[in-house]
Amino acid sequence: MPVRRGHVAPQNTFLDTIIRKFEGQSRKFIIANARVENCAVIYCNDGFCELCGYSRAEVMQRPCTCDFLHGPRTQRRAAAQIAQALLGAEERKVEIAFYRKDGSCFLCLVDVVPVKNEDGAVIMFILNFEVVMEKDMVGSPAHDTNHRGPPTSWLAPGRAKTFRLKLPALLALTARESSVRSGGAGGAGAPGAVVVDVDLTPAAPSSESLALDEVTAMDNHVAGLGPAEERRALVGPGSPPRSAPGQLPSPRAHSLNPDASGSSCSLARTRSRESCASVRRASSADDIEAMRAGVLPPPPRHASTGAMHPLRSGLLNSTSDSDLVRYRTISKIPQITLNFVDLKGDPFLASPTSDREIIAPKIKERTHNVTEKVTQVLSLGADVLPEYKLQAPRIHRWTILHYSPFKAVWDWLILLLVIYTAVFTPYSAAFLLKETEEGPPATECGYACQPLAVVDLIVDIMFIVDILINFRTTYVNANEEVVSHPGRIAVHYFKGWFLIDMVAAIPFDLLI
């Protein structure tokens, strides 16, 4: 008679799926529990143990900040960024110097990925580790590398530091407007667009060049630039800015003055950032001319202004700041037409079709709590990747769950009947059967004279019903998954307890 339990259901295979997918890609990662103190490590794979030199037993239950890997060259700011990422709910990448158990130093890129439950609360953290440099290539500990984003994938490793954006290309926007319009339909740009040429040739750093990471940081200074100062900065030398009595002219307006920039070969870094931020506020060169004239017309309804409409929906549905990093990277690809469009465009503009998908598509409701890094690593669709929660398995109709209350009560009843059979069957065979043979035949009273025979008949009927119930009862397979398919249940029961239950259900007393 089957006594099969499996009270692990309803099970959740999400954690096993993450481990299996990460292991298949030869990654070095740990999984931490966000619900406990210090976000203790609950799993670390073999790749991480080989990377740091510690065994799994030495890593388990330690804080996922990996303070046991810190050393003299470990930056405090990087460690603080990892700790801050564990307090938030967004994906974050941090470069930090770690030390192995043998004392060797290596520069590592740590990717902190939160995993949320159905309520939107962070319950786990996945920390992925990628070695960037070994100890002989690690720089000085005073050099802070965590304020910069990861290198873009479309640049060669040897040319990542030679990417320079020439400031004269930004200063000569109005001069290039006529050349853009003359391109017409034969050019790649839309009317009114501004073409910015980027020099990728390796050259020595000069005062006129600005690194790509500095251009990325310009967006942080746009908020500090007032509207009046932006307007004066875009007017140009024809209309000098008016300053109040006793007030000095704005240095932001002076930063885009061609006369002032041409007199000296070098520009201050602050002026460069502010000038680029001011130019980015204009949607095209037409807006710059309109600002000089004193009238700013409404933005025209053409394809170039609607190019950012799908980007707005993608940004609203993005799951991490990696989408913004990807957008900034692609927006700086050289030799393309940049349409400086305000994100607050007309909502009635139709979304044009684009061959290049900048932001990841909208994630469906079932995966809105899973970050983009987890979705990318697992390579699963929205119909396959579940949320991290207890999910009731989908069972067929008329199927009994093996952990249901009805099955528990039924098993206790069958257990009592088995005990009765084990006690009274030998007793009936030894004593009652002998008395029946010696006594007179009682054929007239039937079952009324033999109450134990009636009980034995009921017990046999219950055993037959138990066999039928076992054909529709779920079970737990070797992978700790609840199986509810009727065919698989029948095959599993035939290979197991079916023969024993059938022999126990045969009414031998009635056959004798």
Rank of each mutant, 00 (worst) to 15 (best):
E23M: 03
R301Q: 07
T13Y: 13
C39K: 14
K373E: 06
K344V: 10
R366A: 09
V59F: 01
A57H: 09
E289Q: 06
E37G: 14
P227A: 05
L256E: 11
R292M: 15
D213L: 05
V132M: 07
S255Q: 12
N257S: 11
P347Q: 10
F125Q: 12
L109H: 05
S26R: 13
C66Q: 01
P150V: 13
H368G: 05
R242M: 11
C108H: 01
E91G: 09
S354P: 14
L15R: 01
S266R: 07
T353P: 15
M291F: 11
R62W: 07
R20G: 10
R271L: 09
L170Q: 12
N339C: 02
N220V: 06
K135A: 08
E177L: 06
D136P: 14
S284L: 13
S275G: 09
K362C: 12
Q11Y: 12
V8K: 10
N117H: 09
A97C: 11
R280I: 10
K166G: 11
N146A: 11
E91F: 09
A156N: 03
P237I: 08
P299N: 08
S261W: 05
F98S: 01
D67E: 13
L311R: 14
G71P: 01
G103H: 04
L316P: 08
P241K: 07
R252N: 05
C105V: 15
S207H: 15
A89H: 07
G345E: 06
L338E: 12
A277F: 12
G186I: 06
E23L: 01
E357I: 07
L343S: 15
S209N: 14
T353H: 07
V196F: 01
P114S: 01
G149Q: 06
S313Q: 11
R62A: 09
M218L: 06
A121V: 09
S263E: 13
C265L: 08
N339Y: 01
S26W: 06
F125A: 10
G47V: 01
G47C: 01
G158E: 05
K166M: 05
P168G: 14
A80F: 09
N257Q: 04
R269Y: 13
E134C: 09
M137A: 15
D346F: 14
P299T: 12
V112L: 09
E372Y: 04
R312P: 14
T162N: 15
V374N: 04
M124F: 13
V8W: 14
L173W: 14
G224Y: 14
G47Q: 11
G381P: 01
A32C: 06
L316I: 14
V110L: 11
G187I: 13
A253C: 14
F163G: 14
G246L: 15
S104P: 03
V8T: 15
S261V: 13
F22I: 06
T367Y: 13
S207C: 05
P251N: 04
A40M: 15
D119S: 08
V384N: 11
D321C: 15
T13W: 14
T305S: 07
T319V: 07
F163H: 13
I96P: 01
H143C: 15
R326C: 05
D346T: 05
E208Y: 11
R242V: 10
A190E: 01
R4T: 09
D286G: 07
A228E: 05
G294N: 15
K135G: 10
P10W: 15
R328I: 04
H368Y: 14
F29V: 02
D321N: 09
R27A: 14
D102C: 12
T319L: 05
A89N: 14
F106A: 01
I359M: 05
K166Q: 06
G246A: 15
A193M: 15
A303R: 06
D67L: 07
V341N: 07
K344Y: 05
S263V: 08
V325I: 14
F98E: 01
V113R: 10
I82D: 01
S263G: 11
T319C: 05
A89M: 14
A83Q: 03
A211C: 07
T337A: 15
F14I: 06
S207P: 06
C265W: 15
G158R: 07
E289G: 04
H309Q: 08
S351V: 05
H254C: 07
D287W: 09
R301L: 12
A160N: 14
M291A: 15
A277E: 12
F340C: 07
D219W: 06
S379H: 11
E134P: 10
V341I: 06
M308W: 05
D197G: 01
E130F: 06
F29L: 01
R76S: 09
S278N: 08
R20L: 06
G120Q: 14
A97D: 14
F98N: 01
